[in-house]
């Protein structure tokens, strides 16, 4: 790890100022991915601005829902009574991620800022457009078992990237219509969660739409009617402590057996948490039956594309979606 400048700040304003001013400076929160990346020489910031002392870890009810401070630890969110009761999908997704130790360290903001776990991104001896734009995508034609099946179209082949976003938490947040509150040198702004992460397009080095120096302050969740019918289903190579091959966050509002409203997102399939808006529309007003869910899966898989080793996801993803919907429909 390179020697870096370490600054501890106690106000968001100072944090934003410290990062905005310098080219290669980053916020340090839980560090569970950043320190890892620095150890592997994938990222070498010259300055780390430690934001852990900022007062941004509260979880509180708001007029329209719930506000979760960016520095709330993953464990604290997952176990918070309000989250468990009113946003169980988020609790389930968080508990499906990483390990208890990592969840004790990782923050909500940091979880959103996680970078891909693609092996080519981490091995500086191999090509990776995300790590080194223009160097090529090692995963295309290589080991792409973990990789994306959605949203990989790119205008320029040399900038191609089929990496996936690794977060579980973000699948729940994108499904539940969260908004991200960020603060920058020009003040605060709100970003719909669905627009926070981006597809690789022609700039796979950019994971999200944050501007230089912008600090995630909080995530807002609107109240929802899905608490009784939520399910997060994660398929992985190990029973625990493994990234998703495919995961599905499903939330339903049922009236009798009729779907009033649905919220759906998939993980392990795209460069960003993959919200299934079209499927949600399809499900509205339909009976919560396996037949409906199978049709929904067909809608969900439109445009999916395998890269060889990840072709199995073309089967696993719809299967997992159907299974998650079935379980969500049963929950109460």
């Amino acid at each position: 790890m390179n020697q870096f400048q370490y600054v501890r700040v106690t106000t968001p304003k100072a944090a934003v100022a410290a990062v905005t001013k310098e080219n290669n400076s980053l916020f340090l929160a839980g560090g569970t991915n950043l320190i890892d990346l620095m150890k592997r020489n994938v990222m070498s910031p010259e300055k780390l601005v430690d934001i852990n002392k900022l007062p941004l870890n509260t979880i509180e009810k708001t007029a329209t829902g719930l506000r979760i401070g960016a520095l709330a630890k993953n464990t604290a969110v997952a176990e918070h009574e309000l989250v468990r009761k009113s946003f169980p999908l988020l609790s389930m997704a968080l508990n499906a991620g990483a390990s208890p130790q990592l969840r004790n360290m990782a923050t909500v903001g940091g979880n959103m800022m996680q970078r891909t776990r693609c092996g080519y991104f981490y091995d500086t001896a191999m090509p990776c457009n995300k790590r080194e734009p223009g160097s090529g995508c090692g995963a295309i034609g290589g080991y792409n078992r973990m990789h994306a099946i959605f949203g990989t179209e790119s205008s320029d082949r040399s900038s191609k990237c089929i990496a996936v976003h690794p977060s579980d938490m973000c699948i729940a947040l994108v499904a539940l219509d969260a908004t991200v509150l960020v603060s920058g040198s020009k003040g605060e702004r709100r970003i719909p969660f669905i627009d926070f992460h981006r597809l690789p397009g022609d700039a796979p080095e950019k994971d999200n739409t944050l501007q230089k120096g912008e600090l995630i302050m909080a995530v807002d969740l609107p109240n929802n009617p899905f608490a009784d019918h939520s399910h997060y289903l994660k398929v992985r190579d190990r029973a625990s402590y493994a990234f998703a091959l495919v995961s599905v966050g499903a939330a339903l509002n049922l009236k009798g057996n009729t779907i009033q409203e649905a919220r759906l997102a998939m993980g392990g399939v795209s460069h960003k948490p993959w919200r299934l808006t079209e499927v949600e529309q399809f499900l509205r007003g339909k009976p919560a039956t396996e037949a409906t869910f199978r049709q929904a899966a067909d809608v969900a898989m439109k445009g999916a594309k395998g890269y060889g080793e990840n072709d199995f996801k073309l089967t696993m993803a719809p299967n997992t979606l159907i299974d998650a919907l079935k379980t969500a429909a049963k929950n109460a």
Binding site: Q5, V9, T11, A18, K21, D50
Partner: peptide
């Protein structure tokens, strides 16, 4: 402590006092 409670590195020493 009020604003910044620590900093390091030669590079930084050369840099601004603004923090």
């Amino acid at each position: 402590q009020a604003e910044n409670s620590g900093s390091s590195r030669r590079g930084f020493l050369k840099q601004s006092a603004a923090l």
